[in-house]
Design a protein around this nucleic acid. Sequence first.
DNA 1: TGAAATGTTGGGGCG
DNA 2: ACGCCCCAACATTTC
Length: 479
Amino acid sequence: MTTIVWFRKDLRLADNPALADACARGGPVIPLFILDPAEPLGGASRWWLHHSLESLSQACAALGAPLVLRAGPPADLLLTLAGETGATSIVWNRRYEPEIIARDTVLKSALAAKGLDARSFNGSLLVEPSALRTFSGEPYKVFSPFWRTLAGFAPFAAPRPAPHVLRALAVPVVSDALDEWSLLPHAPDWAAGLRATWQPGEAAAATRLGDFLDVDVASYPVMRDRMDKAGTSRLAAHLHWGEVSIHQAWQAAAMTADANPAAAAGVGAFQRQLAWREFSAHLLFHWPHLAKKAWKPAYENFPWTDNEAHFTAWTKGRTGYPVVDAAMRALWATGTMHNRARMIVASFLVKHLLIDWRRGADWFEDTLVDADLANNRAGWQWVAGSGSDASPYFRIFNPVLQGQKFDPDGAFVRQWVPELAGLDNRFIHQPWSAPGHALDEAGILPGETYPHPVVDHDYARKRALDALASMKSNQLTEV
DNA sequence: TGAAATGTTGGGGCG
DNA sequence: ACGCCCCAACATTTC
């Protein structure tokens, strides 16, 4: 009774329900990862995946059963592998993106039709989207009541330990070599910043979680907004790839609060952030169009503009707004961006430049190591104002004020926009207001060494509000 | 998980 | 002493 364990966004051995099920059956286990060419992966995601698979592969081998790598359409490959190995069961942990659900549903019945025992498990959410409803039986549209209900389910099931051993098949199973997949960039190798920033894999994820809870969680409520400090959990990518489970994160946080009452507020704030991840998955599950269209239909008529020069300035970090540019360059270099910075740059693209949020979401998915469809799309729609429980459209971030509040010493800007490093604190977030002598002393030539602002803030703000008004009047005339 | 515009209040300078 | 004005500080409303 051989079982194929199909790893997906659950690249860990501990607290992995599908793997635990396979081990409990007692027969041989074949750990498998499939690279599906039909599923687009951004460059940063490919880099992360390579290293996470490397880590998983070592961990599987150490327990006795090597990880098998195959590339191609999953349904075909699973049938082929079952035929090769005589496996009778296939298990995996569920994913909740609409296209993946559709694919897996078809695939599952195809496997069953061939007499295979195919089972799926919840390995990535505290509560599955279908299990959470309001009193009236509707899915949640507002975060706060969602959060109350979710928190009411706690304590959640305790995470399970990793298996001590994986019983391998007697005969070796053919596997691709990871390097053949060319997931790492070469010519040029742009991943130096990623290597310096991240360590993918289950062991590193556990360390990160532990360090965060030991060191940073107590000050999390205040420090998590500071772009110049490392006050966030930096767990998004580890959670996205399933190197740490949501149950592990929740429980470890809860135990931290029990052991250290002074950390309780921080733990609560952290768990609330975990709940945003659940909320995004919930929204995307119940409203699959969230990924592609405005959740609020009216916003499908929003008068977006096309301006390639502006879009390029945004992606390259050359908008002339220091905080925006620092954040965009950090993203490009490291594959991540501070949560507050994500809100600021998203607001800037959507409201200052009037560029469709989908272009920003696409860019994030290309460049983020934690590119998660639900989180990303729900987040962009939240900023754009078109989402469920979204920020109102008129809430327009002022990049200067945000910089002054959340990068008060300009350290974040100086790190990523070194051409401004010599500028006095008073001007670091608004170099255009610096007097000539200050620019001279800092060695800055506006328009040469650092761009002029691509748009004027006051003008852009009014233009965005006008665009919203025109959208609304279009709605009226269409009715 | 904003910011700007507008309104209100109260202390101090000053005639 | 008193009223008036100014304006910072804070509150409310509007976008």
